[in-house]
């Protein structure tokens, strides 16, 4: 049973459930806002920039190009050195002793990253921590230890700390705006999915196609939904109540077949008293039944 769903139908379905989709979006934003503001610990980042001057520069080949490339390549070596236990153990030790910050070299390894700008001899030690002050202290301590170790192990000329780490109190993560946007998008997707699921699970008769194609019955006609106003004004009891018995309704605008009128006249022993309800009676009936009209 293949069902062809047109774009128009999809739009109609989505439009009808707009409120659901919209509330799912709001829910998504609220959920992600909750996570962002209450669950995720903000993280702070700071960095210190260094440059290393190598003494081997003069000894090597005079080719400037390869010389420069070599120096740039050397940054990878420094990077490894910074992240090695030789440096980090020392950092860990000194931090505990001097600053009272307890981190193992492993933990430090995760917090520290070394970045190098393209084709530059300069590089920076970047530290991310849940504490801005700690981040700064770790960065500066690492730079200092690296300075000592580099001279000692790699026999470089000089390590200069160009800019020491500063205290940066604005958290770098979480990104509030991005997270809220993600929340909205997730909510939207979820909402649309729910709408389609509901539509898929709804096996009621939705259109005349089913009647014509599967039920194979002709459609004699369609009747629209009555508006509430139309409904209330077309309930006989309501009209009677409002106007007593002398109500007038619109006369028929249709032509009559004449012989039928005669037939109606012939038919007289009809109990007409029943229609002549007194207004009180009508009210009584209406009150007793607590009128809730329907279509």
């Amino acid at each position: 049973m293949e069902e062809v769903v047109s774009l128009q139908e999809i739009t109609l379905v989505l439009k009808k459930r707009m409120l659901l989709i919209f509330s799912m979006m709001i829910l998504g934003v609220v959920a992600l806002a909750g996570v962002t503001f209450f669950l995720i610990t903000p993280k702070y980042e700071t960095d210190t920039q260094l440059v290393v001057q190598s003494n081997q520069q003069t000894l090597t080949n005079a080719n400037l190009q390869s010389d420069l490339t070599g120096n740039v390549m050397m940054v990878n070596t420094y990077k490894d050195l910074i992240k090695s236990d030789v440096v980090l153990d020392q950092v860990s030790l000194q931090l505990a002793k001097e600053n009272g910050i307890q981190y193992t070299s492993n933990e430090l390894n995760k917090m520290i990253s070394v970045t190098q700008s393209q084709n530059s001899q300069m590089f920076s030690i970047r530290v991310i921590s849940i504490n801005a002050k700690e981040a700064m202290e770790i960065a500066n301590k690492t730079a200092m230890i690296f300075k000592e170790k580099a001279v000692e192990i790699l026999k470089v000329d000089k390590v200069s700390i160009i800019s020491p780490a500063k205290l940066k109190t604005t958290p770098v993560s979480p990104n509030k705006q991005l997270n809220l946007l993600i929340g909205a998008v997730i909510g939207l997707i979820l909402g649309v999915m729910i709408v389609f699921l509901l539509e898929f699970l709804d096996k009621t008769v939705k259109d005349t196609k089913f009647i014509e194609n599967e039920l194979e019955l002709p459609i004699l006609g369609e009747i629209s939904v009555l508006s509430n106003k139309e409904l209330q004004s077309s309930i006989f009891l309501n009209v009677l109540q409002k106007q007593g018995e002398s109500f007038e309704f619109e006369s028929s605008s249709e032509p009559r077949i004449t012989k039928e009128n005669e037939a109606a006249e012939k038919f007289n022993p009809i109990v007409e008293k029943q229609i002549e309800l007194k207004t009180e009676d009508v009210e009584k009936v209406a009150n007793k039944r607590r009128l809730r009209p329907r279509l």
Binding site: E230, S234, I235, F236, L237, E250, S253, R292, P293, L295
Partner: peptide, 14 residues
């Protein structure tokens, strides 16, 4: 509970 139905064809022929 049964309720009266609308007689719209009687009251509003248009």
């Amino acid at each position: 509970k049964p309720n009266p139905v609308s007689l719209i064809t009687m009251f509003n022929k248009r």
